[in-house]
Design a protein around this nucleic acid. Structure first.
Lengths: 189, 189, 189, 189
DNA sequence: GATGAATGAGGCTTCATTCAT
DNA sequence: GATGAATGAAGCCTCATTCAT
């Protein structure tokens, strides 16, 4: 059974917000977002109580998106390195496939009005990857450090890697691989 | 009594901008910045042509600030590892000493209207550190990759480290050290 | 009850701008214009991109207005003198009927940001009158001079005439007639 | 003996105002005027109580200027036509010699805050020309009309003439002469 | 007198949000 | 529900004017 129609417009608005934020940062106007979504300015506020709500929900959607991609075909029983490699490749693939999503995420990550609640919610669903991250910690250089440290490092290093990949597409593959080795050696003892 | 130095007010505005941006991001209002600086809003525009100019000059000032701190007592003839260690510690010290400066920098780094010119100017003065970075590249895992990749990785990993340090001040020192080891092992062969 | 026509508000703003400019010149504030139009200041910008656009469109509207009045019942096949007389009377009637429109026009005519495009557009629709003006030129004192010279002279002399009519309403009719004779004898050989 | 220095600065400001108003209209900023005059912003207000005063005094100075030029070598005992011709040529020469003065005058003539007092004062010194104008009236088409009507017509027609002269400098002389004939025939019976 | 930095009121414009249709 | 016109607060910026030096 198809999703209720209402979802379509909501999704359109979220998609539009991604483009608008990628262009203008979080100060992209709701009018621009509505225009990109091809809906009336007022309609935006039927789906999101206000702009902050929209940005918070977009934040969550992007996190979910990343999660889906990382979780998909996750090699649960593979070696730690293999699982990490999977996560790395999946995340990089996500970022490279949709530059706007990635740029939007970068802006949302420093947006001062993403609530703690959103940040927390953004973690759910990452159980498999978090578990892998914890294993990585327990066996390597980061022993007894919080899991978020490793996770954040992973994300930061992947971001840096993607920046180079964008700047020099012909070497993209080399960056991706070397980036992973860098991460692995940073974390592994 | 010394006559107030030319530039006092300019500095006050820059300082105020740091606080305001740390609080509200780059959408901090010029009114708020002026209020923080205890000057009239109009005065702000005697020192900076417009808000974008102010933000770009602030960006440069912060870069200069980092540079000063990294360059200070730089062990030019020390081992590569020692030089890197110095840079790491200096940068972390800078970020931990002035949280607002660091937060402001984070926002400016993703601000869409920092000009290419500013970004370029922001590089000057880092010659020693860039040279060290190049050495690191030439001898390790990043051979034949652009120097910016290593530099960006350095910054990203230091940022991640600082985040953990802020979250858990009692372990700050351990984070700082482990963070550096992580970076070193990421880059070293 | 008829639904308010689209454009009602737009017209209200243009009408308000006429009054405001008549009072304060082209430096009349958008706030004042909005107030006169009984709309919120923001509304003004839904109808006109910015103040310059508003003034340019007002300029065009006034030109159109004059044109309508001059063209109405234009005695196409009348003698040249009769046609000129018609134009003269029509223009004077327009100016005397709406002092604010006339004052606004005077200000717009010397406003430095009326675009060339607007000036050009302001000419269309005057074909009959321009043709008459050309005939006048071809047969009189202004032979081989540009049509704009005669047109401008016409307008300037009519303006002067109206000023005297305002100053001395009881002699208005005599001014109107004498003014026309003056113009006719200026141009006719 | 040289004029007192104070006059120099005052004149410089008036001269600067001419240029600034020619460029930007009466909304030219006092800062710009001061810059053009190469004096400090504050100095302007030592010579003129406020901007309106400056503009009113400039208005007077320009009127005086015109008067001087018209009065110079005025052929008091020449024929009426000769005297008119002199006035016409003098005025045109003034306007063509200094486009900025002329443009400034055009703006001041429609400036809403030129006081009645200024307008009145602007008339003194024109006795000879006014007398000629009165003679013209008494003997021609404008009999029993106010002298200002003839004067305004003179100015309006001369303005129109100058506009054409600027637009087509190679025909300037022809415009000047034909313009005068037009005026003469407009007024003469 | 001269200066120009400082001021804050006011100008233009944008924008999130509301609400009548 | 959907729309988009309307709103007015707030943002950026300009400017005439003041005043300490």
């Amino acid at each position: 059974m198809p999703r209720p129609k209402v979802g379509d417009k909501r999704s359109a608005i979220l998609a539009a917000a991604i483009e608008a934020i990628a262009e203008d940062g979080t100060s992209a106007s709701t009018a621009k977002i509505a225009r990109f979504a091809a809906v009336a300015e007022g309609s935006l506020f039927r789906y999101f109580a206000d702009k902050d709500t929209l940005l918070n929900e977009l934040y969550l959607e992007l996190k979910l998106d990343v999660q889906a991609v990382m979780t998909n075909r996750f090699p649960v029983s593979g070696s730690l390195r293999r699982r990490m490699q999977h996560m790395w490749n999946a995340y990089i693939a996500w970022g490279m496939a949709s530059p706007s999503r990635r740029r939007a995420m970068i802006h949302l990550n420093v947006f001062e009005r993403i609530t703690d609640e959103s940040k927390q919610k953004g973690q759910v669903g990452f159980e498999d990857t978090i578990e892998a991250m914890q294993e990585l910690i327990d066996q390597g250089r980061f022993r007894r450090m919080p899991q978020t440290f490793a996770s954040n490092l992973f994300l930061a290093m992947a971001e840096t890697t993607m920046t180079s990949m964008y700047d020099s597409p012909s070497n993209a593959d080399r960056f991706r691989k070397t980036g992973f080795e860098a991460f692995w050696n940073a974390a592994d003892k």
